[in-house]
């Protein structure tokens, strides 16, 4: 069904339209969240939060961009918020542990294995994901949207509300940084 019709139906409170929207875009939203937060449980949580937000604020969607672009933006915003909350919690837990208060220090998560990566590339992909997590936010989002979600530079530019040349520049810097970090990683490993 046409996405504009679905959105109009959802604006009128049609539950079946919401179900269709969720079933159509759930894997896209989940996959994007997973690429950013690199944790299956957190990605599920973010995907749910995203659709709750869609349900509650579909009235504010003017249709100036594609519905999927709007969804990507909500998902990314939620994922980044989630990461910031997690970092704050980790910092707070560490500070509390310094004062001897009974608080569990959040430990660094184990290597992330994306379920969509082919078996013989799993180890290298886990290393790459770990390195991607160290990139600056904009480079990380651009790289993840292009490499993990398979969006073209044009689509990435629409989601990030920027130009294609900016995305090209972000991607170039992301690849340079990744290459340098990976070189250091493999040198240290030897």
């Amino acid at each position: 069904m046409d996405e504009r019709i679905l959105v109009e139906q959802l604006k009128q409170g049609d539950e079946s339209a919401f179900k269709t929207i969720v079933e159509t875009w759930q894997s896209m939203v989940y996959n994007t969240a997973l690429g950013i937060v690199q944790n299956a449980e957190d990605a599920e949580d973010i995907a749910q939060e995203t659709f709750v937000q869609v349900y509650q604020s579909v009235g504010s969607f003017k249709g100036e961009s594609k519905f999927s672009t709007w969804l990507y933006r909500i998902t990314i915003a939620k994922a980044l918020d989630h990461e910031r909350r997690k970092k704050r919690k980790k910092r707070f837990g560490f500070v509390r542990s310094l004062f001897g208060e009974d608080s569990e220090v959040v430990v660094n998560p184990p290597d992330f294995n994306h379920p969509g990566v082919v078996l013989d590339k799993k180890e290298k992909a886990a290393t790459l994901f770990k390195t991607i997590a160290e990139l600056p936010e904009n480079q990380r989002i651009a790289f993840t949207l292009h490499k993990v979600d398979g969006l073209s530079y044009q689509e990435v530019a629409e989601v990030m509300a920027t130009t294609v040349s900016s995305v090209e520049s972000l991607m170039h810097r992301a690849k340079t940084n990744l290459k340098k970090k990976l070189e250091d990683y493999y040198k240290d490993k030897e």
């Binding site: 969720v22 894997s27 896209m28 989940y30 990605a43 709750v52 990566v117 082919v118 398979g150 493999y186």
Partner: peptide
């Protein structure tokens, strides 16, 4: 070689799917 292989490790990646009954939980 290792760096290059690592950078190419996401080529051909498949989209991850959430657990079944996502809509019910939502």
């Amino acid at each position: 070689k290792k760096v290059q292989e690592t950078l190419e490790s996401l080529d051909g990646i498949q989209r991850a799917e959430p657990q079944p009954f996502f809509y019910t939980r939502l």
